[in-house]
Every structure is written in structure tokens, then in C-alpha cells.
Computed example of a mutant assay.
Amino acid sequence: MTSLARVSADADRGAAVLFDVDGVLVDSYATYRRIWDRWALHHSLDPETVWSHTHGRRPIDTIAVVAPNLDTEAEYQVVRDFMADEGDAFPVYPDAPGVLTAIRDRRWGVVTSGRAPTVRQRLRAGGLPDPPVLVDSTQVALGKPDPEGYLRAADLLRTPPERCLVIEDAPAGIEAARAARMTVIALTTTHSAAQLTGAHHITKTLGGAMPRIESWLSTPVP
């Protein structure tokens, strides 16, 4: 059994919190919509169809699904070029600094469909600390909704999956976390509550999730 199937034998029982990035820490919804619409029209694809396959997924996975005839890596570079044109249009949510400051000495990390250098740049630009653990799209063979990324993060934090609380905003991310045997709080920042019913709890904002985060990290080890 690999380390991604279970946490290593020397893991303890401490609780941890794992955050998605886009839609949870970074308010990127409108910007990404512009980028993907531009890419879709660039290839005469239906923007609505393309957009429906982007949430919580790696760009290369989106491209592979909506345009399997195209060179995935080449098109990902096109998407990245469009992203560069957007400059600094990726602000962090107003309550993100307070939440991460409150738990900075606890176990936490991020699991993202983006790439680490870009994610760190956006978090730092918003005054957020570097995550102790950051699992990005290059560290997994399969992106969300596969649980690999969340299981890797649990392994790096030496925390059993069932002791991890995940903060997500997209159905694919919720599915990944549930498959990893983790508890999920969904934020309605990018999807309606009706689209997030796979989560254990649903709230409007990251700040609204803070009481459950504090409770989770304070729960005695069973």
C-alpha cells in the first residue's frame, strides 16, 4: 500500500485543515471566467461548456475533456499566457488573512489545481503566509475529483485523513476530499448551496467557517 493510500505508520492523531485556493483563499472566479471564455472563443468552442469543466480541476484536465484533439501542454501554455495578461486580478478574500493568522501555528496546508509558484505569488501578494504544505497540480498523477492530492497533503502533515478538515468551493474538490475520507466544509463563493450537497457543512464565506475550523483543531485526540 502506497503512502497516498494511507498516512505513514509514524503519523500521530493531530487534526489538520486543508484549503483549496481558488474560491476559498483567492477570489479568482471572475478572472478565470474571462480567461476560459477567451480560450474557448479562440478555438470556436462553447464558453459555457468549457467553463462547466473548469471548477476545481487542473487546466490540463479541462483541456483534455473539452478539446481532446488539441495538444494539452501547448494549450495550457496558451491559457497561462492569457492569465499573464490579467496581471494582478487575483485578490485574496478579505477574511483569509484573519483565518490563516489564527491557525498559523496549527497543522494546515493547501491542495490546489494550480502550480506552486503562481499560488505562492498570489498568496504573498495578498499578505497571506506560505502554506507549511502545498500540494499542486505537478505533484499528482490525477487531479480532483481524484483524492490523490488530499491524501498526499495528509501524508506530508503526518495526519490521518479522517482527522483532516477540508475547505472547498467546487463539487470536484468536495468529491476528492470525500473520497479521501475527510470532512468537508463548502463555501458558496462560486457555486450555489444546491450544487454543494456533497459537503458535510455549507457556509457562505471562509470567515463563516472559522467556528468549525477552531472546533475541529481543538477537538481532543480520540
Score class of each variant (00 low, 15 high):
residue 17 V to W: 02
residue 85 D to Q: 15
residue 111 V to F: 12
residue 156 L to H: 10
residue 53 H to R: 14
residue 91 P to N: 03
residue 79 V to K: 15
residue 63 I to E: 00
residue 57 R to P: 00
residue 63 I to R: 01
residue 220 P to R: 02
residue 215 S to G: 12
residue 82 F to Q: 03
residue 131 P to I: 05
residue 211 P to N: 03
residue 129 P to G: 04
residue 123 L to T: 05
residue 155 D to L: 08
residue 94 P to T: 04
residue 5 A to P: 01
residue 7 V to F: 04
residue 140 V to C: 11
residue 5 A to E: 15
residue 44 S to H: 15
residue 119 V to C: 03
residue 72 T to I: 15
residue 16 A to W: 11
residue 170 A to L: 02
residue 159 T to C: 14
residue 50 V to I: 08
residue 128 L to D: 10
residue 99 V to H: 06
residue 30 A to S: 11
residue 18 L to C: 11
residue 167 I to H: 06
residue 27 D to W: 01
residue 27 D to M: 06
residue 125 A to F: 05
residue 44 S to K: 08
residue 26 V to S: 00
residue 157 L to E: 03
residue 58 R to F: 01
residue 98 G to S: 12
residue 179 A to D: 08
residue 127 G to L: 11
residue 17 V to P: 06
residue 15 A to N: 09
residue 123 L to C: 05
residue 19 F to Q: 09
residue 205 T to K: 00
residue 129 P to R: 09
residue 196 L to R: 07
residue 29 Y to S: 06
residue 198 G to H: 06
residue 6 R to C: 12
residue 98 G to A: 13
residue 25 L to F: 06
residue 167 I to M: 09
residue 210 M to K: 06
residue 220 P to T: 00
residue 114 G to K: 00
residue 18 L to M: 10
residue 98 G to E: 10
residue 41 L to H: 10
residue 75 E to G: 04
residue 186 A to F: 09
residue 221 V to I: 14
residue 218 S to D: 15
residue 69 N to G: 10
residue 46 D to W: 05
residue 80 R to H: 14
residue 118 T to F: 12
residue 61 D to H: 01
residue 125 A to H: 12
residue 15 A to Q: 08
residue 179 A to L: 06
residue 119 V to K: 05
residue 67 A to V: 02
residue 17 V to C: 08
residue 107 R to W: 02
residue 158 R to K: 15
residue 45 L to R: 15
residue 209 A to H: 09
residue 172 A to V: 02
residue 197 T to Y: 02
residue 57 R to M: 05
residue 142 L to F: 13
residue 16 A to I: 00
residue 20 D to N: 13
residue 141 A to G: 14
residue 167 I to V: 15
residue 64 A to G: 11
residue 62 T to N: 02
residue 212 R to Y: 03
residue 64 A to Y: 07
residue 52 S to W: 08
residue 82 F to R: 07
residue 1 M to T: 15
residue 34 R to P: 05
residue 110 V to T: 15
residue 55 H to V: 04
residue 171 P to C: 08
residue 178 R to F: 00
residue 12 D to F: 10
residue 89 A to D: 13
residue 91 P to H: 07
residue 12 D to S: 14
residue 221 V to P: 00
residue 62 T to G: 00
residue 212 R to S: 04
residue 32 Y to T: 00
residue 161 P to S: 15
residue 188 T to H: 11
residue 104 R to M: 08
residue 5 A to K: 07
residue 108 W to H: 02
residue 76 Y to Q: 13
residue 101 T to G: 10
residue 26 V to M: 12
